[in-house]
Design a protein around this nucleic acid. Sequence first.
RNA 1: AGUCCUGUAGCUCAGCUGGUUAGAGCGCUACACUGAUAAUGUAGAGGUCCGCAGUUCAAAUCUGCGCAGGACUACCA
Length: 1049
Amino acid sequence: MDKRFPQYDELDLPKLAADVLKLWEAEDTFGQSLELRKDAPPFVFYEGPPSANGLPGIHHVMARTIKDIFCRFQTQQGKRVDRKAGWDTHGLPIELGVEKELGITKEDIGNSISVEDYNRKCKEAVMRYTDVWNDLTKRIGFWLDMEHPYVTYKTPYIESVWWLLKQLHEKDLLYKGYTIQPFSPAAGTGLSSHELNQPGTYKPMKDTTAVAMFKVIRDANSEFLFTDSAAASDSPSPSAKGPGDEGSGSLSPGEGWGEGVFILAWTTTPWTLPSNTALTVGPKLEYVRIKTFNPYTHEPNTVVLAKSRVSAYFSEKNKDTSFGDYKGDGKNIPWKLDGEFYGHQLEGIRYEQLLDFAQPNDGDAFKVIGGDFVTTEDGTGVVHTAPSFGADDMRVARQHGIGSLTLVDLQGRFTKEMGAFAGKYVKNEYYPDGTAPEKSVDVEISILLKEMGRAFKVEKYEHNYPHCWRTDKPILYYPLDSWFVRSTAKKERMVELNKTITWKPESTGTGRFGNWLENLQDWNLSRSRYWGIPLPIWRTADGDEELCIGTLGQLKTEIERAIKAGVMTEDPLKDFDTENPSAAQYDAVDLHKPYVDRITLVSPGGKPMKRESDLIDVWFDSGSMPYAQWGLDYQKLKANDPRPFNAPFDVSYPADFIAEGVDQTRGWFYTMHAISTLVFDQVAYKAVVSNGLVLDKNGLKMSKRLGNAVDPFKTLDAFGADAVRWYMISNAQPWDNLKFDAEGITEVQRKFFRALFNTYGFFALYANIDGFDVETAPVPMAKRTEMDRWVLSRLNSLLIQVQEAYDTYEPTQAARAIQDFVVEDLSNWYVRLNRRRFWKGDQGDDKNAAFQTLHRCLEVVAMLSAPITPFFSDRLYRDLTGKSVHLSNWPKAENARIDTVLEKRTALAQRLTSLVLSIRKKEGHRVRQPLRKMMVPVLDEAMRSDLDAIRDLVLGEVNVKELVMLDPSESKLTKKIKPDFKKLGARLGKRMKAAAMAINGFDQERIAELEKEGRIMLELDGEPLEILLEETDISADDVPGLSVAGEAA
RNA sequence: AGUCCUGUAGCUCAGCUGGUUAGAGCGCUACACUGAUAAUGUAGAGGUCCGCAGUUCAAAUCUGCGCAGGACUACCA
C-alpha cells in the first residue's frame, strides 16, 4: 500500500519538535523563509537584547513566543522579517557578579586588580551563558538570527552610541549638572541605589529633629494670610463652615498678634536648614492658620501647617481656651484655628531666609512651591526643601527654578561660609573615634532656632536611616556632578509621538508609559563604574572647553592634533582606516576603560582635555540598538548623511513591532523612544506588546529562594515547545500575568493537540487505504454535502477571525478560536458525523468531496496555527502537502464560502439533537434503541425547509426512523413573551419595571392579539400605554413541544 | 507614596459600547455511547460576579472610595 500520508502510532510532542528542528537545521528552513521573501516588503522587528549574564527562565519562553508569533505571522503574510539577535553586555549586574566572583569590592578595582584585568573579566563573564540562551531559543522554535547578533560591547556598537551622544551634544541636549546621590563621606564615594539596597544598610537612628518657623513676607500673594480670616479671602475655602469663621477680629496677625505669620516645616536633619531654599506644600492638601504662642519664647505667633497634622502639635483640650490665661510656661498653650485653605494658595508666597549664612546664585529662593510628593503622614505637611540634600528637593526645586545651597563639603563638614559652624561634621558619626563634640550640629542649630524664636518643636526622633555598607556610617544625600540628557526639552514631542504608537494593552501606553512621559525628568546618564560605554566627552580642567567625539575618525583626527600639540605621544588609532574601516581594524580598538582614559586631546584654545570619567547608563546602550546594531557607514559619514548607518538601516527603522515584558516600559521602551525622538524626531517602533509576568500556579512570583521557579528546559522536555506555547498563549492574554501550571499544558495536550492529531490520523488512515490523491480535481461546491459546505463556511469564518486577531496583536483570541474550531466543529461534529463517507466502498464524488473538505480544513488549520505551534503545524502541513508551512503563504479567505444561514441551520440541528438525547434520557430510552418517530412543531416555512435539510442528519444522530413536522395550528404551541428591555427601556424609563411585569403576565390570547394587531394597549398605574410588537420578543420553547414517539422500530 | 494591571463556579478563563434566569472548559457525581479519538453526549451539584457607596427604569459591565494580589517608578522631609 502506498502510504503517502504518514501515519503515527502516538502523539509525542517533544519528539516531534526535536525531529522538526533537525529538519529545519538540515534544510535551513529559516534561511529559506527569508530568502524566499528577500525582495518582499519588510516587516521590521527589533529584538530587545537580553543579558547573557544570567540563565533564561520560563518567562523568557513566554516573551520569545510572543515575538516569534508575530514574526512568523507576518512572514506568512509574505513580508520579509529580518530578526537580528542582540546581547546586552554592560552594566552593574554584570559588574557586581564579577566582584562577587572575584571576592572584591569596587574599591579594589584599580588597586588590587587593574581596571584592564577587571574589564576583561566582565567581558568574559557576560557571554557566559550564550550557548544556553541559543539552545533555548532554538528549542522553543524562536527563529532569530543568532549567527550575527549585535553585541553592545563591540567597538562599532560603541561608536554608534557615541555618534548618537554627539548629536545630542550638538543639539544642546546633553549637559553636566548636579544630581543627588547617596554619598558616603567616610568612604569618600558615591553609592548606587543598588548598593544602598544591600541588606542591613537601613538602621534605626535617633536624631534631633526640629519644626522650624519660616516667616512669611507680606505681599499680594500672602495677603490672605494676614487678613482677619483666611476663610473670608477671595480664594474658596475647602469647608464653608470652619472654626475660623467664628470671628476673632481682635486677634489679627500682624496687627497686634505677634510679629507675623510663620510656616511650619519639620526636618530630621536640622543641619540642612542653612541650605534651605524653598518650602514645598501639597497643592491639593488642606492647610490651616492657627493663632497660638511660641512654646519657647512664649510670644504670640500665627502659624501655618497642614490641617490633618494639627492634632500632632496641638492638643484638643487647649483649643479655643482663653489666650489671657496662658501662664507662659510652655504648658497648655491655647490655640485657635483661624482659617483654612488649599496648598496651592500658598504657592508663590515668599519668606525670610531662616539662617542667613549664604545666598544661592543658581536661581530663585525662599519661596513656597508645590510638589506632589508631599504627604501628611508625619511632619507638618510642609517640606523644608534643601535641593542639595534630597532628590525630591532637587527635582521640585529645578521644576520651579529654585536655586540651591551646598554648605557641606565632601567630607561631611560645614563649609567656611558657616561661620562658627564651619569645619564641624554634620553628623557626629563622622568624627574620628572619641573626638566627637557633646552637641551635634543638629542640636546646636536647634538651640539657635529656639533662641531666635524660630523653633516650634524640637525633639528626638527615631527613624531608619541608610548607612554605608562599607564604613557603617550614615550616608548623606549629596549633589554630585553628572551628565544629563535634557529629555524634558522634548517632553511634549515624546508625548505626541507616543500617541501614534499602538500599545498592547493600550493602558500601558496611556497609563504607565503616558504618565511617565508626563512627569518626565532629565535622564541621568552618569555611572561611576568601569564596565560600560565611556562618555565620549573631553574637557579642559577649567571646564571652559569641551569636545564630544562622535566617531573613531574624529577621534583619530583629534589624537593627531594632540600629538602635534605635544599632549600625546602615540596614536592608538594609527592603523584605523577612516575611509573604509575593516572588522579587524575595529576589533583592534578598545574604547573601554582604561584605554580611552589614556587619550588626552587638545582644545581649540590649545589646552589639554581629559575625558570626563563617567560611563553612561547601560539603558542608553539598549535604547541605541535600532542604529547601533548596524554600525556607522564611513561613506555615508563622508557624504554628511544625517542617518549614516550601515544597510539595512534605511528600511529597518522604525520597527513595526517590538515585544518585551511590561517591566521594560520605563526601561527599553522608554530609552528607545527617547533617543529616537531626541535624535531623529520620530518613533522607534510603531507597535509594542508588553507581556505580563509568569507566576507560579498559586499566583506567586517565581524565585529561586521560594524554589517555585520552573525550569524551561525540563518543561520543554516534558511537553514539547508547541504545547507549552499553545498553553501560554491560549490560557491568558499576553499582558495578563500567567499562572503557570503544568496541568494546564497537559489539558491543552489532551484537548487541542490530540483532537487535531486524531483528526489527521483518521484522514491519513482512510486516504491511504483509498489512495486519495490531493491532485484530484476538486468536487464543485454544488456537489458537496450540506455538512461539507458547513464546515468550509466555518473554516472561512475562522480564517477571517484569526487573521483579524493576529493583525491586532491578539494571539489569545486567535488560539482560542482555532481550538474551538478544531475540537468542536471539525473533530466532534464534522468528522464524527461523516465517518461513513470515508469508509464506504465506492470512489464517487461524495467520497472525494469528504476527503477534499477534510484535507482543506486540516491544511488551513495548520497554517493558522503555525505562528503559535511552529513545529506541530509544520509537521502537519508537510504531511498533508509535502511543503513547509513556514514557506507557504497565508490562505485567502473565500467569502463566498461563508453561509451564515447554513451555519444557523446546523446550529439548529445541533440543538435538536441535544434535545432529543435529553428526552431519551428522561424517558429512559437508550440511544442504541432505535425509535420510530419524533415530532417537531414548526413555527414557519423557513423552519420547515431548515428541518428538511437537516432531517437525515438529525435522525441518524439520535437513532430515530422518522421526523414528523407538526403544523403550529395543530399543535398546542405555547408562546412566551418578554419585553425588549433595550427598546422599551429607552422609551419608558422609570415605567419600565411596571411594564415588564405587565408584559410578562400576558396570557396566550393577549400574545396572539399583539401578534395579529402589531400593537396592544395596556394600563399602567391608570395610564394607558401602547406596546408595539417590535418592542417585545415573542418566542416558542427552543424547539417547542418536541417529543419522541413510538417504541422500538 | 504615585502610576498601571488583575480580582466572575474548587481550578483556568469568556462575558462587546449597561438590558430579562451570568457562561465555557477542566475537576466532581450519575447515566449513556464507544468500529478515528485515554474521546463524546445528557443530566446534576457548585457563584454575596472582592467590598461599600453612587449614577440609572436597569450595573458583573459606568463613577467614586476601599480591600487583596502583582508590577514599575520614586522616596520617606
